[in-house]
Every structure is written in structure tokens, then in C-alpha cells.
Design a binder for these strands. Structure first.
Lengths: 112, 112
DNA sequence: TTTCGTTATATCCTAGCAAATATAACGAAT
DNA sequence: ATTCGTTATATTTGCTAGGATATAACGAAA
């Protein structure tokens, strides 16, 4: 039996959360499904929660992360911008690096 | 206006949280005041919450983190073990290192 | 102009968590 | 045996974040 170091990272912009674990998940689901409502269903969260998250993301980002369209063919939809795509790639990479970093720190606690 | 990467780290033992931001704060306050109830007051949290936290810490740690005494001179008290003291030192150091690490990663997001 | 499946938004409602409260157990000192 | 300030624990109360629900707005296509 041994200890584990876990972590949560997130990106803030002007005191507001821009990206976190859940928001990245949502953006990935939007990318996959092409719509916010389908993404919400896929993640098994309410549409309201998903909408609030996405709204918050776009409000705190420097540039738009998704393009949302209302009405029209298929009722509308949501898709990631190039900026949004590169944001989640960067987030994932940083997160992974952070885990590896923390794993190395574990020995400082293991043998106390 | 720029982004910031924030983080929370915690130590788990067998799926249970051992140490986190709040628990470390509590342990420090116990160390300072010599009692759980005084520590709770100092941190402005309810005694119940403090007790639950401390109980959880001691239940998931390999060795005792505090020694609690009931009754007797002064009604009792709580004090950190050597193990507990070195745990919070290690936690603080790892946490600080993590911040510095993440700061270096920031550029990957800044100029996307 | 009607249909369609979205996005967008407001309103209720509830479950679950936190705070508040109460009280028992304890043991050294007097 | 009584007092004292703790630790330890149960119970009730209150609040709020989130879920459920409803519906408006939208615009392309037929």
C-alpha cells in the first residue's frame, strides 16, 4: 500500500476559469458530435450545465473557442475553432507533464 | 491580460484523500494552537468539519499524524506527531515545486 | 410558411451537503 | 465527586448548486 499524488490543473483568465478537466472533456465531445446538446448527452450531463460551461469558456477566452450556430440545416450546431483545438491539445500536454512531474516527487513522501 | 495556470494537488492513500490544501491548513493550525477546537476557530470552520477532516487524515495515513487526548488537564488537546510535521513540510515543498513547474509551461498557451 | 433540431434562457424543485445545535465521554486537578 | 475544556458523535436545520422542465429564438430547406 502506497501513497499517490493527484492533481487538478486549470487555466484562469482574469479570475475566471477558462479551461479545466470538465471543460476540456466537453470541448472534445463537441468536436466529436458537432453539437452542444449531443455532447451533453454523451457526457451524461444536463444541457444547461453544458451550456453554462461552454458560455463561460467563450466569455473568458481571448479568442472564440467554438462557433455556435442557431437554426438552419439540422437546427444548428457547435464546432471548435482552430484556437479551441490547439487549446485542448496544449492543456492535455501540460496536464500529462504535470502528472509525470508529480510522480517523480512521490518518493519525498513515501519514505518519511 | 494573460492566462494563469492554477493547480490543486493532494495525496491519496487507497482511494481516500490523505492530505490536501485544507487538511494541511488544519494541521498547521493544530500545531500552532495545540487543540482541534482552537484550530477550527482560527480557520473559521465548524468544529465538526475540522473533526471530520482530521479523522479522515488519521484514518488514511500509514502512521498517526496527530495525537489526540480527551479529558485531563485543560480538557485535552491535539498535537502533531513528527510524522505529521514532516508530511506537511513535504507537501508544501511539492506544491511549491508544482507551481514553478506550471509557470514554465504557461508559454505553451500564451501564444497560440 | 411550415417543419425541424438546435441554441439560448427562465423558472421551479429537490437532493445532498454544510452549518448549527445538542450532548455524551473523558480524565486530570482540586 | 465536581469542575473544566476538550474530543467525539448524533440530530436537526438551512441553503444552494444542480437537475428537471418548459419554452422562446433561430434560420435553412422543403
Amino acid at each position: 500500500m502506497s501513497y499517490k499524488i493527484k492533481s487538478r490543473i486549470w487555466i484562469e483568465s482574469d479570475k475566471h476559469v477558462l479551461l479545466g478537466e470538465g471543460r476540456v472533456q466537453l470541448l472534445k465531445a463537441i468536436d466529436k458530435t458537432g453539437s452542444l446538446s449531443k455532447a451533453a448527452k454523451a457526457l451524461n450531463i444536463s444541457y444547461k450545465k453544458a451550456w453554462n460551461l461552454l458560455d463561460s469558456v467563450n466569455k473568458s477566452a481571448k479568442k472564440p473557442v467554438t462557433i455556435n450556430s442557431i437554426g438552419g440545416k439540422g437546427g444548428g450546431g457547435a464546432e471548435l475553432t482552430d484556437y479551441g483545438k490547439s487549446l485542448i491539445l496544449a492543456f492535455d500536454e501540460i496536464n500529462k507533464n504535470c502528472w509525470e512531474f508529480l510522480d517523480k516527487q512521490l518518493e519525498k513522501i513515501e519514505n518519511l
